[in-house]
């Protein structure tokens, strides 16, 4: 067994510097690496480029890094629900690259899997396609999209073991698996870290080879963005 554990969030973030490109897992506030984000805020690193489907809300998730003006550029598919984000974008303080969600996921997976680029139909005929190479397949236009290039990937899983193997829960899985191994260093934080051998190899979602550092998060708030319920009859 190759042990991937680090002592805690401080060791996990060793080497993160200003001007780096970071992948950050999660969809909305679900499955975000809460502890790593808190440590990024604390570290004060600046001029970050963040690849993440969303930008959090004003006071949670990546919104915390926006509050401190630590992000120079966001690469996302959807950034509603965040007033500070909108303000920084409209004032030109924040650079924003909006790309289709499936393309975002695939550009992560391509980086993970050693595929430099791929063709997708998403965005054909729209401003997303501007300046990109185009080719027809089966009579349908596709655009060339490239794998991401990132320094760190921060992901969050439900359970993990010392070998870095990960299991996700529910829709908190989202972008986390495709970001594993998609950056130079992948840092996984988990709710529960167990010794190697305790997780059933049949149930591993992401093998530890894609994860460089793993630690158990100190606490998880797991905030709900839209609490929707129905009445008991």
């Amino acid at each position: 067994m190759i042990n991937r554990t680090v002592k805690g969030v401080e060791e996990a973030l060793e080497g993160v510097k200003s001007d780096m490109t970071l992948m950050v897992g999660g969809f909305g506030l679900s499955g975000i690496p809460e502890n790593s984000i808190a440590q990024l805020v604390k570290s004060g690193v600046k001029n970050l480029t963040c690849i993440s489907n969303n930008a959090g809300v004003d006071d949670f998730g990546l919104g915390l890094l926006l509050q401190g003006k630590q992000i120079k550029k966001m690469i996302s598919s959807y950034v509603g629900e965040n007033d500070e984000f909108e303000r920084q974008m409209l004032s030109g303080e924040l650079e924003v690259d909006l790309i289709p969600q499936g393309t975002l996921a695939e550009r992560c997976r391509a980086a993970q899997s050693g595929i430099p680029a791929f063709f997708t139909p998403a965005g054909y005929g729209t401003e997303v396609a501007e300046g990109k190479e185009m080719r027809n397949f089966k009579g349908k236009p596709h655009i060339l999209e490239h794998a991401f290039n990132a320094d760190f990937a921060f992901v969050k899983a439900w359970k993990g073991d010392e070998a870095g193997n990960l299991i996700f829960k529910g829709t908190a899985r989202n972008f986390n698996p495709v970001m594993c191994g998609a950056a130079t260093i992948t840092v996984a934080e988990v709710e529960e870290l167990v010794p190697a051998g305790e997780l059933d190899p049949n149930e591993i979602h992401i093998p530890g080879i894609f994860v460089k550092r793993i630690f158990q998060g100190e606490k998880y708030e797991k905030r709900i963005e839209q609490r929707t319920v129905r009445k008991r009859e």
Binding site: S76, S77, Y78, V79, G80, E86, M89, L90, V96, L98, I99, P100, Q101, G102, T103, A122, G123, T126, V128
Partner: peptide, 8 residues
């Protein structure tokens, strides 16, 4: 400027 999400 909310973004396209998965619509495209």
């Amino acid at each position: 400027v909310k973004g396209m999400g998965g619509a495209m």
